[in-house]
Design a protein around this nucleic acid. Structure first.
Lengths: 131, 131
DNA sequence: ATACCACATGGAGTTGACTCCAAGTCAAGG
DNA sequence: CCTTGACTTGGAGTCAACTCCATGTGGTAT
């Protein structure tokens, strides 16, 4: 797939895809100077998009993705690389705590917004009777 | 309160407080050129800090805070300003939808992270037996 | 041959939210 | 009187994540 097709399919500007290439987040092979996105590239991009929605920074995504890949690779060897796995696991746990804190915040904001909405509605109803 | 005290109490750099003043988010009165934070200012700052944690942009915070204040003011008048209330209400609803989408994402990320953690643990356990 | 694409590059510009700095003022302490 | 410390200002710098631009190349359509 060419960059334009990928851009359309994922609804991501081509410039952004080139940017991802530049920073080494997603670097497809070239054919005659032109980027060709493989099936694997598309899968990776899907993973990136998903994590982005989940508010990971591009940096975090990069770390997690490469650690994940490294683990997959080492799984096929006789002696898996435990340190990479350990590092990734603590990364994951940290993110999990972060996400849990966020979930708490979200509960709170929902209460706050509901409270605020109720107050606003009071004003609107008072306005109705006044007319 | 002086800027330094506020900075300490809220654990927010003085430069950030000055920045908030600059952009008109929180502009305390001056006494001889020096910022004096009133009780009301501190309450407002607390509200700002809270909303920040909830991932509102400073811009959103500003809009919501001023709409809220305007509503409070108009509540004390004979004819409340319904348009401000309407605007705020739709703002709130939009944010609520946003927050709900975020909550969904968070559920998903938790599943993802759990899945990833399980995979990593497999590697680690395999490593143990191999030793 | 010419026009028109989609692609390429390097580099500059943008936005939001700070963050840092140099230079200056002012009150209190030794 | 001089230093110290907390404050002031305007302006510049930083960071992430784009976003835009001028210029250039290579392939297809008329």
């Amino acid at each position: 797939m060419f960059i334009g097709d990928v851009s359309k399919q994922f609804n991501i500007p081509a410039d952004t895809l080139r940017y991802y290439d530049r920073i080494g987040l997603l670097s497809p092979r070239r054919q005659g100077g032109v980027r060709r996105y493989s099936e694997a590239d598309l899968n990776k991009l899907a993973a990136i998009a998903k994590m982005k929605k989940l508010m990971f920074s591009l940096n975090e995504i990069q770390i997690i993705l490469s650690a994940d890949a490294q683990i997959d690779k080492s799984l096929q060897q006789a002696s898996p690389d435990l340190s990479a796995a350990q590092a990734l696991l603590s990364q994951i746990r940290a993110k999990l705590r972060e996400v849990e804190a966020l979930a708490e915040n979200i509960k709170e904001v929902k209460r706050e917004l509901a409270r605020l909405a109720a107050k606003v509605k009071t004003v609107l109803e008072a306005g109705e009777y006044a007319e």
